[in-house]
Write a protein that binds this DNA or RNA. Structure first.
Lengths: 246, 246
DNA sequence: CGTGATCTTGAAGCGCTTCAACACAAGTGG
DNA sequence: CCACTTGTGTTGAAGCGCTTCAAGATCACG
């Protein structure tokens, strides 16, 4: 098994080339303000109340919590989890949210959160009271457009996940997860070929609709094929085209 | 096999107790105006340009089409279909849209439609230019809230579908589809225990992430168990609790 | 009424799950 | 500090649920 060098990109920290000029919240730099004028960004800034930190394993919000504020991941990473209506206690990881991602968009529907959000590492999030935000969106069309885009993107993302669970074999699913994660990190300014996966094998399996054993076996096989170098949660992608061809 | 009586609820026609007072578009009665004052509904009415009819099998919009208008199903039903990025030509049915459902919400993200929409029967849809709609949302907070709710509901719906594909066995998936369809029809004013399913077994399988043979076998088993009475696309639910207990 | 699409059912095979045992790392308390 | 506990990861072997392949049956539509 190849050695793993210690210095790997964390899944979360703010990338340097996106250095924030607002120490309160990285929101302005990833998530909402793309395509906004500086004037519009000022309007946005007013509706962000403050930030909050959560420790690894802590829950940001539960299913059924009243929906007061939207969240945007400032640093760290969180998973969202839903339980099956069928009382069997079956749960599934529904999403992985990295720095800059929005959180809580599913709650506009009923006014209650429809999933749990759990921190995968010590993280911090921005708080955005949604009534303030909605008012700002009514005053600023660019901001409105941005909110609609965020919601729409979440729909597309969930569709992609449904497609993965509906059509791909286990090894294709694992490859898709690794490539997706790589692309998202690259988009945030990382190299993208090496990262510290905060999900457990169990979480990965739940997310992909397979068992943790299958995840583990698949990663081992990818390693034997020379596609990746995996050492526990530390994963390095060696052959992108090979992974894509799975 | 029990006989099937001819008069069954179509999947689509406008239910009588929701009789539209606007002959142009049923949109006002199902989809957008819930919780809006009559004044607000007037504001909404202005942004609806007109309606369009599509024949069974025709496509309302394709992947990659520029996003000009939102749609709301006026009568009939449509399926949305996406293709896997992996060029294998694998396709999956992503959604089933009945009267009153919105269509095209996924396109706010990129400005291009991310799926195909195909009519399952002769149908008609309302056309809502989204720029007009967005302006109206900026002027009417209740309308804005309604749009956010629609987008959010779509996220929740897709999450539910992901959960189904990720955690349920084949028979549980089929049962979930039947119960979901029944609930949606009941919500539209039908009895909900008998309906004409417009999806083929192939479409159902694609939607549920299983093969058409498994769908067929499962329905046959449900019939043998006395849970349903299925005759081709005509399906009657005999034992709701039994289905829920699968 | 015929032809192609759709549906049903059977039989064989495979991919994944399940169960089990063990290795390993991290965190905790004596 | 080490022993202990707990959570996590790896690997093997057996079994099952679903897919695949195949052959008819039935339906729908021009």
């Amino acid at each position: 098994m190849p050695t793993v060098h210690g210095a790997s990109a964390p899944l979360s920290n703010a990338p340097s080339r996106h250095a924030a000029h607002c120490s309160t919240c990285a929101l302005q730099h990833y998530c909402l303000p793309q395509g906004l004028s500086s004037e519009d960004v000022n309007a946005l800034q007013k509706v962000i109340v403050n930030a909050r930190t959560i420790k690894r394993g802590e829950t940001l919000f539960h299913v059924g919590d009243t929906f007061d504020t939207l969240y945007a991941v400032r640093s760290g990473s969180l998973k969202t989890v839903v339980s099956a209506a069928n009382g069997n206690g079956r749960e599934q990881v529904m999403g992985l949210h990295l720095g800059g991602d929005a959180l809580g968009l599913e709650a506009f529907d009923t006014g209650l959160h429809a999933c749990h959000a759990v921190a995968l590492e010590d993280s911090s999030v921005c708080l955005i009271p949604h009534v303030h935000f909605e008012r700002a969106c009514r005053e600023t069309s660019a901001l409105q457009r941005r909110l609609l885009q965020l919601l729409s993107r979440e729909i597309v993302r969930k569709s992609t996940q449904t497609l993965i669970l509906g059509t791909l074999r286990a090894d294709e699913r694992v490859a898709a997860l690794l490539l997706d994660l790589s692309a998202r990190l690259k988009h945030r300014g990382y190299a993208g070929n090496e990262f510290n996966l905060r999900l457990t094998r169990d979480d990965m399996g739940s997310f992909l609709g397979i068992t943790l054993e299958t995840v583990s076996r698949t990663l081992s096989r990818f390693q034997a094929m020379g596609l990746i170098d995996a050492n526990g949660k530390l994963i390095q992608i060696l052959d992108f085209d090979g992974l894509r061809a799975i």
